[in-house]
Computed example of a mutant assay.
Amino acid sequence: MTFTRYVALGDSFTEGVGDVAEHLPNGVRGWADRTAAALAAVEPGLEYANLAIRGRKLKPIVDEQVPPAMAMAPDLVTIHAGGNDILRPAVDLDDLLNCYDEAITRLSATGATVAVFTPHDPGSAPVFRALRGRFAILAEGVRQIADRRGAVLVDYWRIRDYDDRRLWAFDRLHMSPAGHQRMAIAVLDALGVPHGLTPLPLTEAPARSTVQERLADLDWARGFLAPWLGRRLRGVSSGDSLQPRYRQPTPALEIR
């Protein structure tokens, strides 16, 4: 299967947060860039747009990103949304999934191949596993949407490689470069596109004592959790001042 125009929609997951590349827009690369490069190896004329913005909740993604994506007439769309909603104190999951279903229906009606993602299983994450029930409901809802609408499903929940902390960035919320590479492989495999991507090499994780683990937890709380909670209390997002990385279709071979 080959594609000629790929548009990526969503939040920080799709923007590429955690995969630092200072020379690229917003200072990140991410699995979508990596996927676009692999698709361009099959179809050199592939154009790629990435409208994802970190911090966006599902409804703003649908309202702000779906219409311009449809106007680009893509033949491939990926969309990941809902993660920022279920991290809020209160969320109506039925309303969330209905909105998601309507968006996938609109995108699929264009004739484009649409790929969707379940959320990650946070069962191994000390802080986020308290919300595991919400994540599980969203995951099953996305599976049902994919079944109903004929969308390609990337079942992130079932990719157990992500139980390895080396696939996560310092903030424990976003993927590391190795995690983004693994996701690009999962997307290409789900699409049935031949590719040459392989997992990035991982350094051996040193054993940590209980004291070292607690110190790492403290560093994380100071470096990520406290600022993240502060933004929630102020009602601001890390993506408020950012623009989409590739607002218009761009030749994927030009992105390095």
Rank of each mutant, 00 (worst) to 15 (best):
L215P: 03
P122L: 02
H195G: 14
L93D: 03
L46T: 15
F3C: 08
D155C: 00
A186E: 02
S12G: 11
G83M: 05
G18Y: 12
L51E: 04
G179C: 06
F135Q: 02
V91Q: 07
N98L: 13
E254G: 02
A146Y: 08
A186T: 02
T250I: 10
E140Q: 15
D85C: 12
L242D: 06
D189T: 13
W31D: 01
Q65K: 11
R54G: 14
G235A: 11
K59Y: 05
A40R: 09
Q65W: 12
V236Q: 04
D63N: 12
D163G: 15
V91Y: 07
R165A: 15
R149N: 10
P89A: 04
R182N: 00
G30F: 07
D101H: 13
A178C: 09
G179Y: 05
G235N: 11
P119M: 07
G230L: 11
F3P: 07
G192M: 01
A139Q: 07
W168M: 03
T113D: 05
V236F: 02
L202G: 03
M1K: 12
V116T: 02
T2V: 12
R166K: 13
D121T: 06
G196K: 01
T14R: 01
D217W: 15
T78K: 06
T4A: 14
G82S: 00
F3T: 11
A221K: 08
T105M: 10
L225Y: 14
I145T: 10
A81T: 02
R232K: 13
A69R: 00
G196E: 06
F13P: 05
G179P: 06
V20M: 10
E15M: 09
T198L: 10
D92S: 10
D33M: 10
A90T: 14
P60H: 09
D95T: 11
F117I: 03
T250Q: 05
N26S: 09
G27M: 01
W220G: 15
G239T: 05
A71I: 10
D163K: 10
Y156H: 14
L191M: 00
A71E: 12
P67Q: 03
M175W: 12
P67W: 01
P249Q: 13
V66K: 01
A216V: 15
A52E: 07
G150V: 02
L153W: 12
G55F: 02
P25F: 13
A186C: 00
F128E: 05
L87R: 13
A8D: 03
L225F: 15
K59C: 06
T210W: 06
N26W: 01
